[in-house]
């Protein structure tokens, strides 16, 4: 196989455009979850721990207000300094992180708080300890918890949305995606390694997976694309937050006003691909 074979499907321009999208979503100066939470929400107070022995800094949970509304918040958090990147594992959660998210869903259900999630993760942490402590089980149980949550739930993909790790906080009543964010079955590097047996084909994989935000809207996986400042969110955090905040509030209001029912959320994910007659 040569690179020439691949260009039959993914023209160089498509691959370059898809890759540029991925690079903006991963820009080192891009606002991370806490940067946006601090600018979009009021009175945010972080809570800690999964109540089962761990507190994963890659997953942040807390309480906040938005306008007049009370909220529970869950977010993937990347680190910016070398120390913080290590402590937060580049936004890749261990089982304790997913169990921390489950705790937040339970708390929100009991206290009748709407939930807003911020998604920015390359995926679940790929390590020995994570596997030993039941990474797959933790993610599966988090999927289940989201589909049983009895309160309104809004997800916002703010950067990378990688694989099952992203899905653990994505199964909301409504999903918003920042203009340069993406959601993918696997990172372009991992997909390239599987499909082409060459991680270097990441640009072609990105194009073939059609992972840009606009496709998610077309397919009904996302409900709204949130515009970013010219060039991307990294150019202006304040403007990014100013664009996001009113949309968050409008979306939450819309979910609540249309008549809320978790069975409706389950039906959304049961029928999402729209390929099969019920």
């Amino acid at each position: 196989m040569t690179a020439g074979d691949l260009e039959v499907e993914a023209a160089p321009d498509d691959a370059a455009a898809a890759w540029a999208h991925v690079e903006v979503s991963r820009h080192p100066d891009r606002p991370y979850a806490l940067d946006l939470i601090q600018r979009c929400l009021d009175d945010f107070i972080e809570l800690h721990g999964d109540r089962q022995g761990g507190d994963d800094a890659a997953m942040v949970i807390g309480l906040a207000r938005l306008g007049g509304h009370r909220l529970a918040v869950v977010a993937n958090q990347k680190g910016r300094t070398l120390e913080e990147r290590g402590r937060r594992n580049f936004g890749m959660a261990h089982p304790e992180g997913y169990r921390k998210a489950q705790r937040l869903f339970t708390l929100a259900g009991r206290l009748k708080l709407p939930v807003v999630s911020f998604i920015d993760t390359p995926g679940a942490y790929p390590g020995v300890a994570a596997e030993e402590r039941g990474q797959a089980w933790a993610i599966a149980q988090t999927l289940e918890a989201q589909l049983a949550l009895p309160t309104p739930y809004l997800a916002v993909v703010i950067g990378e949305g990688g694989s099952g790790g992203a899905l653990a906080t994505l199964l909301a009543d409504s999903v918003m995606v920042l203009e340069h964010a993406f959601l993918s079955v696997a990172s372009p590097e991992a997909a390239a390694a599987i499909l082409f047996r060459d991680a270097g084909q990441k640009q072609h994989a990105a194009a073939a997976l059609r992972l840009e935000a606009k496709n998610l809207l077309e397919w009904g996986i996302a409900d709204e694309i949130v515009p970013e400042p010219e060039g991307g969110a990294h150019t202006d955090w304040e403007k990014t937050a100013a664009l996001l905040r009113p949309r968050l509030e409008a979306r939450l209001r819309m979910i609540t006003e249309r008549g809320f029912d978790p069975a409706r959320r389950r039906a959304r994910y049961r029928q999402l691909d729209g390929l099969f007659d019920a």
Binding site: S184, I221, Y269, D273
Partner: peptide, 10 residues
């Protein structure tokens, strides 16, 4: 692609 990912939710 992402349609495969969503089968987990389904």
């Amino acid at each position: 692609g992402v349609f495969s990912l969503m089968q987990m939710a389904k």
